[in-house]
């Protein structure tokens, strides 16, 4: 294939202003859609997997259980994610939604893998049925699996019985992000909100999850993940009592 234009993967930073138009269209992005990247297909067809290429099915899932990703590598990657997304959206709300979508994709996988590691060797693997135990699981296990430490608090809203809040005093993903003043509404933890949404969705507790900055003097990065559960969940919970 002859490159009539510069390699698309290299051009992200330089000429994204005109190439981003076809990726943009926020109305058509569904949660599971992938933007069409022509270069990807051509590279797949040219590099056929050899017979000795390692296969995910041959790898034990517990191999990387205690492995950790370098924080600076992650910070760099995440900053690129935010920049990439920002170029393709039309506002803060849109940006948060896109980050949420990306987090969702991660969350579905994190959930399966996390539970497999916990229950995969057990004789009778268990599922969580109660709302409170699911929220506790998100608060401790999911946070531990994704960020290496538990979240700081889990609260229930006083005004609305269908709202719960998970509070992180110093979210790992925002540690190296300083949001410009004119975008002070933006919370990059929308990514985390997406993860939480995927986990709750997977365990059949559908909810709308958003993230909000709630700084205190002691913790300027303090973030609240707001979980607004769907009506059906609360109704089912009533029945189970």
């Amino acid at each position: 294939m002859a490159y009539t234009q510069p390699h698309p993967r290299l051009s992200v930073v330089s000429n994204s202003s005109h190439s981003s138009v076809d990726h943009l269209s926020p109305t058509t992005t569904s949660r599971f859609s992938l933007p069409s990247v022509p270069s990807l297909h051509s590279s797949i067809t040219t590099t056929k997997p050899g017979p000795n290429r390692p296969n995910i099915y041959d790898r034990p899932l517990n191999k990387t259980r205690s492995a950790e990703v370098s924080a600076s590598a992650f910070a760099f990657l995440f900053s690129e994610v935010v920049q990439y997304t920002q170029k393709r959206v039309s506002g803060i709300n849109d940006l948060e939604r896109q980050l949420n979508t990306l987090g969702y994709r991660l969350g579905t996988r994190a959930l399966e893998l996390m539970v497999w590691r916990a229950e995969g060797s057990s004789k009778a693997p268990k599922r969580e049925l109660k709302l409170l135990s699911v929220l506790m699981m998100v608060h401790t296990q999911v946070w531990k699996a994704v960020f290496g430490k538990g979240a700081d608090a889990l609260e229930r809203s006083v005004e609305n019985p269908d709202e719960y809040m998970i509070i992180d005093n110093d979210p790992l993903i925002e540690r190296h992000i300083s949001v410009p003043r004119d975008m002070s509404q933006l919370s990059c933890s929308s990514f985390t909100a997406g993860i939480v949404e995927a986990v709750l969705d997977g365990l059949s507790f559908p909810a709308r999850v958003t993230s909000h900055n709630t700084p205190t003097v002691q913790y300027p990065n303090r973030t609240t993940i707001l979980i607004k559960l769907e009506k059906s969940v609360l109704e089912r919970e009533e029945l189970l009592k």
Binding site: F32, T108, L113
Partner: peptide, 25 residues
Amino acid sequence: VWELYVKTMLNPFQTAHTVIRSGVF
């Protein structure tokens, strides 16, 4: 099957709603 399914899901091109076509699976 669950273990194989988890491994399949870890593929970034796979979602919970895409048909599993992997020959190895």
